[in-house]
Design a protein around this nucleic acid. Sequence first.
DNA 1: GACCATACCGAACGCTCGCTCGGTAGCAAG
DNA 2: CTTGCTACCGAGCGAGCGTTCGGTATGGTC
Lengths: 202, 202
Amino acid sequence: MTEWRQYSELQLDPVLRAALEAFVDTGYHGATVRDIARRAGLSVPGIYHHYATKQDMLLGILDITMDDLLARSRAAKEEGAGDPVRSFALLVECLVLFHCYRRDAAFIGSSEMRSLEPANRTRIAALRTAQQRLIDAEVDEAARSGRFQVAYPHDAARAAATMCIAVPSWYRIGHESTPEQVAERYVDFALGLMHYAGPRPV
Amino acid sequence: MTEWRQYSELQLDPVLRAALEAFVDTGYHGATVRDIARRAGLSVPGIYHHYATKQDMLLGILDITMDDLLARSRAAKEEGAGDPVRSFALLVECLVLFHCYRRDAAFIGSSEMRSLEPANRTRIAALRTAQQRLIDAEVDEAARSGRFQVAYPHDAARAAATMCIAVPSWYRIGHESTPEQVAERYVDFALGLMHYAGPRPV
DNA sequence: GACCATACCGAACGCTCGCTCGGTAGCAAG
DNA sequence: CTTGCTACCGAGCGAGCGTTCGGTATGGTC
């Protein structure tokens, strides 16, 4: 994954695609297997031929989504290797692009964590923690070298991440701004939040 | 509401208190009326003596919560009247304190909007829009006078608000930081996000 | 003492839920 | 031309859902 800015349609089989639509509309508990089947153009047993339980559908969506995000984030971070301010800016850009282009999946990823059974939640939560640590590491280093003037680096990193994660709550494709425009603005917001005073690194 | 920084236990009757607990644990659709009844120490018909439907319980919680937030926000804004930077800072402080002290109710307020029936959603959404407009107005004015160096004031205001609204996703009372400490840090983050360079106004 | 409103409850109604049973249709391999 | 595999479906199971019915107990009013 070197082209982390490049997005084509998310690769989901028809069942997961239908499940994702249903979960976005009514939430995991509110979505019925009959509704998912109708959206997929299948019967209810047709759905169960592919996935053993509704829980497995949620888990499948979240696994694919988090793998995609982590791969892109690692590539973005790599692009700025050696310069923590630049790496941080690229991570924010990546996070916003992802939450615009993968809006539905990203939205489910943050809103339906609690609908996972404990063992599944533990696994997915670990992926989300890994994602946050990528950001924390760059902020820590930029703060240590004095380029970010921030007294509580982890709090600041979390604040920056959460404002990106909230993007799907208001953005959708077709919005007056493109994902690239939103990402550019959010990089600027995030650097400001860190009280970064130098030149914009992206 | 002049003492918008003061918090005592949220005034909810036993049924709404139980419903709020249940909604936080499993979400609106995942919570059952039997579960709410058990938490309230009542039978199922006992619950229906007080509220006609489960939907009315969600609506009651959201109404009380949004009224509380809006009253506090208007008071906070008033305290900085005449100085938009100060008003904005007070609004952010108020928003963070609220999302710490009223964590559960605030969490439901942002996560269960989609579980409201259309007519109810419209009403509550209007309250949330009013809340956002309070912030927008101050950011607009601070940007117009050049004290906030931000090219897209509404995007910046939304970014600032969403990072505050996300606080309940990680904070709970008993956290190593007090609500007042979190609020102070977030005011600093929000002002940085606006590229504010002057003295801290709070 | 009759009346009424408030605050509840045991039992159950009709429905929908996640999920399964016992199939069929199509197709490739032997 | 049988066998076996994949991809499905009509019908329905048992459980649990939101909600309701027909009560009872309590306490205040005239």
